[in-house]
Structure formats: structure tokens, C-alpha cells
């Protein structure tokens, strides 16, 4: 276990310093420093209410922090809202996945990024191109999908998660943020999603992962950050820690 490092290094894709957020009288987190290195999987762990989700939401522009600085790709104070974060290259895989059940896999993958052909003043969808590229996006991450013309409603939880991650990664994102990506999945589906996260890293996409599952975090993460009661209390390399140590850090028993 090493001390919390307070200076964002040059290889950080996303970092923050002295970040605080309050909701009325309730303190979500105080004076948090954090960084995610380029091309690594960075995990944020902590007990319920430790402030993980709120921290992530501040980092991707959903909430505006009360104090502190955020740096993305070397730029300070990068975004005022999630749309700007998305345009800058941060994709979030929401806990609810943000899929539209009645639309097809291809339509979901290209939602609000549709490919259009211009015919005079009109812009018509290029459905063929979107289906082709959807297949390419899925096979690049080795996601097995019977048909991209299938409605998302009929897919399993793991397949839905895969599509949501694929959409996030497929847009050329520099950083993919995932909040509890395997919380609702079975054993096999969890393994599939973990394999998917590894493939993202192989393709040099940086990942921030919020998780409750310490074993998973140790399997996947290069760097692990631990929050407790609204503070960032420790950071460790994933390969150098044990489950016991993580439990101790999260509960404060160390």
C-alpha cells in the first residue's frame, strides 16, 4: 500500500485534485485526488455511500463539483455537461445501460450518432452502412450476436451489457467509464464482460471501473483507488494487493 499521490502525472487521461461535492448539508466527498492512467484499467472501490458514484458523475460532467480541479487529457475544467464529456471522448456505460428495448442492436449502437446519406436537402438513414459497421464493432470485441437486426428486448442481461459497452467503445472513445458493469449478471455472463474489459485495454482504451467485487477488481485493474466515507484513502497496484488488504482498506480496519 502506497500513499495517495496528489500530483496528476503526464500519463493521466483523467485526473482530479481537491475535489469536493455537497448536496445541501450532505457531504458526498471531500478533497479527493484521483487519476486514471492512459491505457490502464483503473478501479474505484468503496462501501455503499462512500461517494464512488458521485465522484464518477462529477468526473464525467453529470454533477458540477463544489471545489477542486478536473483534468482530462491535459485540459483543465473540461466539461459542463455529459454531452461535452461524450464529445471529448469519455463514454459512460450507465448502470441502467441506456438501451432502447424496441430498437434493434444496430439502431442502439448508433443511437444519436446515426449515419445519414444526404439527398438534396434531406438526410436519410444509411441503414445498410450502420448494420455493416455494427457487425464490425461487435466482432472487433468478439461479441457474439445472432443478428444486428434483432430487437434489444429479446437479449439476455450479459448481451445487453456487451452492447452498451460496445457502443461506448465503438465511438472511438479515449476513456470508458463503467458503473458496476456486472452487478446484475450471472457467473458466465460476468466472465464474458470481464473478457470484454480486457479486450478494451488491449485496444489501448482507458477504462474506469466502479465495482463492489474485490476479486473482480484485482483480476482486471492495473490501479485500484479506495474510497471511505467521502475520502480517497488509498491507492494500490492491482497486481500487488490481496483481497484481505482491500477489505481492510474499504472498511478502515487497517
Amino acid at each position: 500500500m502506497s500513499a495517495v499521490n496528489h500530483s496528476p502525472s503526464a500519463d493521466a487521461i483523467l485526473a482530479c485534485e481537491g475535489l469536493s461535492k455537497h448536496f445541501g448539508g450532505i457531504r458526498a466527498f471531500t478533497d479527493v485526488a484521483f487519476q486514471a492512467r492512459r491505457g490502464e484499467v483503473t478501479a474505484v472501490i468503496g462501501d455503499n455511500g462512500a461517494g464512488k458514484s458521485t465522484l464518477i458523475r462529477c468526473l464525467v460532467g453529470v454533477h458540477v463539483p463544489d471545489a477542486g480541479d478536473i483534468f482530462f487529457d491535459g485540459r483543465a475544467h473540461p466539461f459542463a455537461n455529459p454531452d461535452e464529456a461524450r464529445k471529448a471522448g469519455i463514454e459512460t456505460v450507465h448502470q441502467n445501460l441506456a438501451l432502447i428495448d424496441e430498437l434493434t442492436v444496430a439502431q442502439n449502437l448508433f443511437l444519436n450518432r446515426e449515419i445519414v446519406r444526404r439527398i438534396g436537402p434531406f438526410a436519410l438513414l444509411d441503414r445498410k452502412a450502420m448494420k455493416q459497421q455494427a457487425r464490425a464493432m461487435l466482432s472487433r470485441l468478439s461479441i457474439n450476436m445472432p443478428s444486428v437486426s434483432q430487437r434489444v428486448r429479446r437479449l439476455s442481461g450479459g448481451q445487453r451489457q456487451a452492447i452498451s459497452i460496445c457502443r461506448a467503445a465503438g465511438s472511438g472513445a479515449k476513456l470508458v467509464v463503467m458503473d458496476e458493469p456486472t452487478a446484475a449478471l450471472g457467473v458466465q455472463e460476468t466472465a464474458n464482460v470481464e473478457a470484454l474489459i480486457r479486450r478494451l485495454r488491449e485496444q489501448a482504451v482507458s477504462v474506469i471501473l466502479v465495482s463492489h467485487n474485490f476479486d473482480q477488481v484485482r483480476r482486471l485493474s492495473d490501479q485500484i483507488w479506495v474510497m471511505r466515507a467521502g475520502r480517497m484513502v488509498a491507492t494500490v497496484r492491482g497486481s500487488e494487493t490481496t483481497g484481505k488488504e482491500l477489505v481492510a482498506l474499504v472498511t478502515g480496519a487497517a
Binding site: A98, I100, N112
Partner: peptide, 10 residues
Amino acid sequence: GQTESARSLG
């Protein structure tokens, strides 16, 4: 279909 999801995608 899902207003919230649509909104979160911009």
C-alpha cells in the same frame, strides 16, 4: 421507448 435512456445519450 425509454425517455431516460434516450436523454442520457444526448
